[in-house]
Design a protein around this nucleic acid. Structure first.
Lengths: 126, 126
DNA sequence: GTCTTATTTAAGTATTTAATTAAATAATAT
DNA sequence: ATATTATTTAATTAAATACTTAAATAAGAC
C-alpha cells in the first residue's frame, strides 16, 4: 500500500492505489495483448490478417501480388505473425499456405468487424 | 482486373483479384485502424487507456506514480494519445486531467474486455 | 543429377520509437 | 514580484522497425 508519491495535496490516493492494484491483476494480459497489438498495428500485417479472416489461406507469392510488395518483405511480415502465433502454415508442394490461427480469431474479430462496418471512418467523421 | 502477376500455374487468380478488391473497399478503415492500434500497441499506452476505461480521469503526475516512470515520459505518451484523438483533456488549476474520448470507447472496449476476462492468457495456455 | 520455382534468411540501411535530461510554460500562493 | 508545483517541450541517444538486395533452402520438373 501507499506506493504513491504524487505531491498534490488534492491527489486522490485511493484512486492511485486502486489503479496500481488493478494493473497488477491484469499485467499478464496487458503484456500479451501488447504483443498481439504490435503485430496487428502495421499496415501490411493488418491487411494480411484481414484477408486471412476472409480467405481460407494465402501464400507469400499471392500476398506479394495482392499487397504489391516484394516477396521477402511479405515473408518477413509472415514470419512475425507466425512467431507471434497469429497464423499457422501448411505446405502443399513448394507452396506454403498461411492461415489464421483459430485461437486468435476471437481476439481479432472485433477489429475485423470494425473494418468491415467502416466504424472507424464514421468515428473520424464525427 | 488481372493486376496479378503470380507465376504459379495453380494460382487462384479469382482469389487474388477478390483480395485486391476487398482491400480497396476498406483501405481507409485499415489505415485509420492501424493508427489507432499503433497507439494501443505499447505497454505504457495500453495501461493508460485501460486505466482510463475504468477511471473518470487521471493526470500526468498520478500516472507517473501508477506506472512508476518519469513525468516527461508519461507526458509524451499522453501527447501521442491526444494527437491521435484517443483522449481529451480538461484543466483544473494547474492539473490537467486526461480522459478517454468517448468516440473511441466502442473501438477499444473489446480489447479492454479481453484484458478484464484474461481471455488472452487462456488462449496462450491452450 | 541440373534447372526452375517458392520461400526463407541474412546483411545493410533508413526511419521510427521511447527513454533521459534539461529547459520552457503555465497556474497558484505568498 | 518571487517561489513552488504541474506540465510540456526540446535535444540527445539507444533500440526497434521495415525495407532492399543478395544469398541460401527446399520441392518439383526434366
Amino acid at each position: 500500500m501507499s506506493k504513491q508519491e504524487c505531491i498534490r495535496e488534492v491527489a486522490d490516493l485511493n484512486q492511485i492505489n486502486r489503479c496500481i492494484d488493478s494493473l497488477e491483476k491484469v499485467e499478464g494480459s496487458i503484456d500479451r495483448l501488447t504483443d498481439i497489438l504490435k503485430l496487428a498495428a502495421n499496415d501490411v500485417r493488418l491487411k494480411i490478417l484481414y484477408l486471412l479472416s476472409r480467405e481460407e489461406h494465402l501464400c507469400p507469392c499471392d500476398l506479394s501480388d495482392i499487397l504489391d510488395m516484394s516477396v521477402p518483405a511479405v515473408s518477413q511480415h509472415l514470419r512475425k505473425l507466425k512467431d507471434g502465433g497469429l497464423v499457422k502454415t501448411e505446405r502443399d508442394g513448394q507452396v506454403i499456405f498461411y492461415s489464421l490461427n483459430p485461437l486468435f480469431k476471437d481476439i481479432l474479430s472485433p477489429n475485423f468487424d470494425q473494418i468491415n462496418n467502416n466504424n472507424i471512418l464514421e468515428v473520424l467523421a464525427a
